[in-house]
Every structure is written in C-alpha cells, then in structure tokens.
C-alpha cells in the first residue's frame, strides 16, 4: 500500500505522518540523554530540544488524527495494520494523537532512518542532530508556504525552534571538530558513519511527489543544494572532512526500518500495550 498513489486527502495524512514520525522518533532518541549529559547545561539544552520535537510531533499527530477521522471507514481500514487501531475503526471511534504514536507498529512508521539511529556517544548524537537540523531548517522554511494551513502554521512555529537546534548542533560540530585530537577523531567517525543516512532525507517518494503536486508539500530536491552548502560551511569551520562515500541507506520513509525502531516502539508503547484503552 505504501508505494501506491492514494487520493489527495489520504496522501496529505501520510505526508503529515512522515513529518510527525521524524519529530517523535528523533525527540525520543534525544530524550534518552536526559539526566546523563556530559555537562549539566547541555543536559538541559538537549532536554529542551527533545521537548520541541515532541511538541511538533503532537501538533502534527493531532492534525493527522483529524484527517484520519474525516475519512470513510473503508479507507481508514486500509491505512494501518495495527489490530488496536482496526478495533477502534470497527467500533466507529475517533482516534487521537496518542493512538497514532502508541498503536502503530514499525511498518506503519514513516520517519527517515537517520532519526532512529542510536545516540551512541556525544559525537554521534551531535552529528545526527546537525545533519537532521540542517535539513529540518530548510524543510520547515519551505513548508511555511504549504497550502495546508495547519502544516504552514506548525512550520512557522517550529522554524524558530529549529533555528536554535541548528545553531546548537553547528556549534557543537565546530567545538568537537576543532577541539582536541580525540574529539576530532570521534566526530569524524560519527560523521562518516551517519552520512550514509542523509541521502534518504532527499529521496522523493510517491507521498512527497503527490504532496508537492497538491501544493502542500516541500520540493526536497530543491533544498538539497542549500543543505549541502550549509553542511560544507560548518564542516569547513569544524576542520572536518566531507565524507566521500556516496552509497546511501534508505527505506524509512517507505516504512522499511532498521532494527532500532522496533526497540524504540517496544519501550515507548509499553504502557498503552500492557494497559490498553485507559486514560492517563
């Protein structure tokens, strides 16, 4: 189902989920640092970033849930495989932000693989954030022009937050790259490793294409140049080497994930799975 063209309103829902899933999963990863950061001020800063991502995810899931609830039941049934969601549809119940976050399995998540990669150490975490924040900055800047007023509003609000995220992660790239020999080696290794997940950010899926054609989505091919320039500028100041490997992983945006996502969801969804249908 995931690669087949769908109608306009369903596509808009899937497009919204793609953005929301990125925010939720990356926010989850970043939140794993809470209480364990190398410097108290940075622990607080990262927790704040995790909160920003979570806030974005919530607005987007609420929007997605509204779109979902407006679809005819027959179509709702085709969208997610989760038994818990199917039961809700059968009962004619509306879904909400939590149902989308907590009741879908990995094969219905649309985040890019980069977002779910593990924290490993401070260098990997900074690199993952930097590569993603740079993308996210140009992405939200363009999404402000979406014809979907909710997406445009979320983009406008999020852009302020993402501007700060990008400044934070760029500064850390520079600090680590132009810090000690050890920090330079560590951040270069992390960059070389997570670089292979950047190609997917700019892969245009059917959902992306349709969203762009409908005037609600972003032309991600067009922001790739800006992304590349910004990355180059920061890497240069950080005295780091641009990775030369061009082979890229992909699949997340089309719901084929790495092994990591399953564990993220097992942990995140534990309460809703063990104690279903309750108010918390």
């Amino acid at each position: 189902m995931t690669n087949q063209p769908v109608n306009q309103s369903t596509n808009r829902l899937l497009y919204t989920l793609q953005i929301a899933d990125n925010a939720l999963i990356l926010g989850h990863r970043i939140s794993e640092w809470c209480g364990h950061g190398p410097i108290l001020e940075q622990d607080i800063a990262l927790t704040n970033t995790a909160l920003d991502h979570l806030g974005q995810a919530r607005s987007l899931y609420q929007h997605a849930a509204d779109m979902f609830n407006a679809l005819p039941a027959d179509e709702q049934k085709t969208l997610f495989s989760s038994t818990a969601l199917q039961n809700k549809i059968t009962k004619g119940e509306n879904i909400d932000e939590d149902d989308l976050a907590y009741l879908r399995d990995g094969w219905d998540f649309r985040n890019a693989l980069l977002a779910e990669q593990p924290n490993k150490d401070w260098a990997y975490t900074v690199v993952r954030s930097f590569l993603y924040d740079t993308f996210n900055f140009y992405f939200y800047a363009a999404l402000q022009n979406s014809k979907d007023v909710v997406l445009a509003a979320v983009a406008e609000k999020s852009l302020k937050e993402v501007t700060y995220h990008l400044r934070w992660s760029s500064e850390w790239m520079i600090r680590l790259g132009d810090g000690t020999d050890e920090s330079k080696a560590r951040v270069q290794e992390a960059l070389d490793s997570y670089w292979a997940y950047t190609g997917e950010l700019f892969e245009t899926t059917v959902v992306d294409k349709t969203a762009l054609a409908d005037g609600i989505g972003v032309d991600i091919a067009a922001i790739k140049t800006q992304w590349q320039q910004r990355v180059n500028t920061v890497l240069e100041e950080a005295t780091l080497t641009l990775p030369t490997n061009t082979w890229m992983h992909s699949g997340g945006k089309e719901c084929r994930h790495s092994e990591h996502l399953g564990y993220i969801l097992a942990e995140m969804q534990f309460m809703q799975r063990a104690y279903p249908d309750m108010e918390w």
Binding site: D98, Y102, M268
Partner: peptide, 14 residues
C-alpha cells in the same frame, strides 16, 4: 520519559 503513557504526560515529565 521514554515510557510515558501519553504524549502529554511525556511532555510534562520531560
């Protein structure tokens, strides 16, 4: 934090 039962609770806890 990673296991909070709803997104709202997760945000408040964070």
């Amino acid at each position: 934090i990673t296991r909070a039962p709803s997104l709202r609770r997760k945000a408040v806890l964070l």
